[in-house]
Nucleic acid binder design. Structure first.
Lengths: 198, 198
DNA sequence: TGATTATATTACACAGTGTAAATTTAGTCC
DNA sequence: GGACTAAATTTACACTGTGTAATATAATCA
């Protein structure tokens, strides 16, 4: 589906890598409104016209970058799902792995997730987390629309997913004062009781 | 501090009202990247140059609009604080009033809070909710950094405030399927136990 | 090596920005 | 009501950025 990984021409890979790196650099230095194709090409040391051979415009480039981010994160989630039971109490290994991956590439994630006026990435991550919570739900309870505590299923999903993403962003913005494992443990404490009581 | 309410010249008020209305209209029709001073002035039926007599640029205008939003919401919160005890169990009248106000002006809030690429407003609301949760905290527990359940204070604030704002945005995007009172009740169920157990 | 494909170069028409100066219009104050 | 004041309009200008086209150059592949 995505032709990115099929092409092997090193020139294409080089250009896109340079553009991605330039984008992350610029986003550390200025608001996203100020990032133009001109500046991007200059920083990436490519010709401005070359940009248009790869992306329609800057929002399009960000969409593609978000796609890649979702691919990476999904791989981690699925990998964890395969082996372990995510509902086994306080551990929540899936979340630990997710946070560890973000921590390893924290320079990247901090910039793209916490930059103002660029919610494309947070939106995508939010969707991913929503799906994750929903599946967790369906595993721990039936397909009922309301929990035993009287909480609407959809409200719980809205609540839980935005809580997770917001906390992760704040965690990154504050330069990760807790370890991934500890933060995952905190998440378990904060929400475990409502959804997993069985 | 804010000179907006001191000036009385009806021409100023008219121009700013037209600009605000035009902005909300355009945001319903297109992504924020596509909103230019040109389009804004045309839709507001004012001259383009007049825009610059009031705002530096579009981000500046959005900042000012966010200021006004925060003023309005703060007034509601303070009004509720005065009379009632926000920790009295499941009611949480402050939240009910907040949601009622948002529901009354839902056309406005839906557009500005849920529009992609315009997180200025959600950021400001997030700050407001953080403050509210923090105060709630200090009232129910001491100034300790960790709760009895073993949850870090700052993590709980990150978690709770982003959960609230995320849920409100989803509630608006889904055209408010629950009443303000019911949603506030859900919030109490979702978070009351951790923070208010006494 | 020869064919192919990505990138660079140059050029162009167009849209939007931000400011300046002079003029018109509307509101305020006595 | 009329003079004064301030807001809004009109027109103009220099500038930055956009997106595309045509052609040339350089790197890759077979």
């Amino acid at each position: 589906m995505d032709p990115t990984h099929q092409r092997t021409d090193p020139r294409i890979l080089r250009t896109r890598r340079l553009l991605r790196e330039a984008f992350v650099e610029l986003l550390q230095e200025m608001e996203i409104d100020k990032i133009t194709v001109n500046r991007l090409a200059e920083r990436a040391t490519i010709n401005r016209v070359t940009f248009y051979l790869h992306y329609k415009d800057i929002p399009d480039m960000m969409d593609k970058m978000a796609d890649e981010m979702v691919e990476d994160l999904s791989a981690i989630l699925e990998q964890t799902v395969a082996g372990e039971d995510p509902t086994n109490g306080e551990e929540w290994p899936m979340m630990v792995h997710l946070l560890e991956h973000i921590a390893e590439q924290s320079k990247f994630y901090k910039v793209i997730l916490s930059s103002r006026r660029a919610p494309v990435f947070t939106e995508r991550l939010l969707k991913l987390l929503s799906k994750m919570i929903q599946e967790r739900f369906e595993r721990s309870e039936g397909n009922v629309g309301i929990t035993r505590a009287g909480i609407q299923r959809d409200v719980a999903i809205w609540y839980g997913s935005s809580a997770l993403i917001g906390t992760i962003v704040s965690w990154l913005r504050n330069d990760m004062p807790y370890t991934p494992a500890y933060l995952a443990k905190q998440f378990s404490l904060l929400r475990g009781r409502f959804y997993d009581k069985r």
